[in-house]
Amino acid sequence: MTNITVRSVTNLSAIPKEEYLYKCTSACAGCSSSLCLRYVLKAAGPDSVLVIPACCTSVIQGTYPGTAMSVPVYNVAFAASAACASGMSEAFAAMGRETNVIVYAGDGGTVDIGIQALSGAFERGTNFLYICYDNEAYGNTGMQRSGATPLGARTTTTPGGKPTTKKDLDRIVEAHNPPYMATACSAYPLDLYKKVKKALSIEGPKFIHVLAPCPPGWRYPTEKTVEMGKLAVKTGTWILYEREYGKLTINGPSKAAMRKPAPLEDYIRGQGRFKNVSPEILNLMRQQVQQNIERLSREEAGVC
């Protein structure tokens, strides 16, 4: 029998052992957002505050009087997180405190109702990190469509599949010229950890957009959460990159995927939300993936 206690757990050695997400949250089994939050908090450390609009994380933390999170969590109204974080960040600055202010918001609270506050905070240069964990629908209320729901996906308010494409949040954020922005995916937690670390080392408004597969919402078995995230990256549907002071870097897993993406069907086949997607829609989805890959490839190559 292998004595696992004496063997090094090499790929975890760089990550702090502290867990700021206590056992246990009320997240659904297989929740990738919980997984992301573990690494966000490990990277941020204890001198951090999470500002959370109405979203799954409002529920995940637990019901009063106990919470599963051991950093201060400020719950605020749906549209208000970026603005609330602006005020908090300025208050800390006024007091000479260096506490990290991190918005951890779902896609609905980011691309839809919260986008005005997000835009305002980025334009003002608020010193904070905004993380959008994107499960591509209003998960907390039972999977209604959001602006981040992709073309063809069935939700409770798009029962025939969403007829329009996913809002390109990253290009909206990019238009604000933040000093740091990145994409990440729950299937690559160490990559997320590094990106949060880097973001928090930079002054000003930072943004990380995390794809967060959702078993009940996307209708796949709970154990497939990490696999689903990897497939999103491997098919080029989700591209991992960083943009530091405007300079784009495609991250490792996506480099290979962009050269030779896995068939899109590998990603959507396992998801109930894409069941019965028409060949026309599938074709459009394929075109979008290709266009996105080409656009980012051109940008990285300096051809715009």
């Binding site: 696992i4 975890l12 056992k23 949250t25 997240a27 297989g30 990738s32 919980s34 997984l35 573990r38």
Partner: peptide, 27 residues
């Protein structure tokens, strides 16, 4: 690394009081 609920400790013991049984670890 992949456990969403951090119920697997450094020594890779699984805390069954809190493990929700999602199966990611097995997958």
């Amino acid at each position: 690394q992949y456990c969403p609920d951090a119920v697997i400790d450094e020594e890779l013991n699984i805390d069954l009081d809190y493990c929700k049984g999602c199966g990611i670890c097995a997958n």
